[in-house]
Design a binder for these strands. Structure first.
Lengths: 197, 197
DNA sequence: CCTCGAATGTAGGCGTCGCCAACAATGATG
DNA sequence: CATCATTGTTGGCGACGCCTACATTCGAGG
């Protein structure tokens, strides 16, 4: 009699990803279990297996979605009309904001578990993400506002700095407030370095 | 007849830590299991519990040892007689070298699992580690070779950059060779920034 | 409209894990 | 030498990821 729920969920895959992201945000990576997700969504413990061949596949899907969200966030934060320094500051703010309220997800995105297959889709997403920064730097370089050199290399160090700060935030060595407040100073450092002029 | 091994191991705690570090290096964090460690060392599956209250306690001990090793490595790499730039380069090289052949361990060291207790010992070890960099920067600052500003803040951004590069290495976006080769350029960037002079 | 195969969900089981409690051997302290 | 804390063993609990066999539903071709 209890017509309960239909035998088929409708969009279990999406529901699992949504639940996973919520769990990730609220309880952290360690609390992510396929069985628990199945329970939350109301299906049997083996149902997730129909949509993700194993746990890593789900993590990959989460990471992929994360990259897309981050790339979009960076793209909307980028205002090509701005001068270099404020333009970079906006990007840095957007990245740090993402890192702050997606700490566990970001960690997942950076986990090097997907080297073997590489999954092209993932690579493309990463490219899109770092592309935001690279574009800005390359343009500035053409205008002579940034030193010469392989753009990829420049992009690497700036990206590393950002990534490092994000890591410090999730390690708890830097409060989110301090990080966001320091964004301007951070960009200034990126541009001018440690040496006095 | 088989007088096998004595009932008591002698120094089980150290043996476990050693085995754990080996496993960490060879198979990665995911392959670390208390039961497996016990098997490797030749004790029963519950024996580790006598020395580490839970798995996290073992991980903390590993991280602590890692910090001590890293701090020592940085200290021996620091030559106060050198001018600023080569001196920093040596430190960067030492840090990257550690990151390269202790990737999984470094990840553990940066995991923010030990905020609650803080374990003072850990905090002291961290302080010792970052202290190497901070000292160099503070001295250079006094000599006027580095811009003014809160030394802790300067230290933060340089540390973040280093940490970020290390992250890129373990993410596989940067080969160890490329990272070490780029150390000099990295330091130059830290000192001079992206803007042309 | 019906059938039949593919897609999706369920039930149960296997081996492993971390942790716990009860018990056994050892070694240090009086 | 007796006693007791330390250290190791055995066995068990619940949870996990993954697998296989089975059930239900959906959709495409007759």
């Amino acid at each position: 009699m209890p017509e309960s729920r239909p035998y088929h969920h409708g969009d279990l895959r999406a529901a699992l990803l949504a639940a996973a992201e919520r769990t990730l945000r609220e309880k952290g990576t360690a609390a992510l279990s396929l069985r628990e997700l199945a329970r939350e969504v109301g299906v049997s413990h083996a149902a997730p297996g129909r949509h993700f061949k194993d746990k890593q596949a789900l993590l990959n899907a989460l990471a992929l979605a994360g990259y897309e969200r981050l790339a979009q966030s960076l793209n909307t934060a980028d205002d090509p009309a701005l001068p270099l320094e404020p333009r970079l500051t906006a990007l840095v703010r957007a990245y740090l904001a993402f890192a702050i309220d997606n700490a566990a997800l970001l960690e997942l995105m950076y986990a090097r578990k997907h080297e073997p297959d590489a999954s092209e889709q993932m690579a493309a997403a990463v490219e899109q993400t770092v592309g935001s920064l690279e574009r800005v730097l390359a343009e500035a370089q053409q205008r002579g506002e940034v030193i010469d050199g392989d753009p990829a290399e420049l992009n690497l160090v700036t990206g590393a700095t950002l990534h490092g700060v994000a890591g410090f935030i999730s390690a708890g060595w830097l409060t989110p407030e301090a990080a966001l407040a320091g964004a301007e100073g951070l960009v200034h450092f990126l541009l001018h370095g440690l040496k006095p002029r």
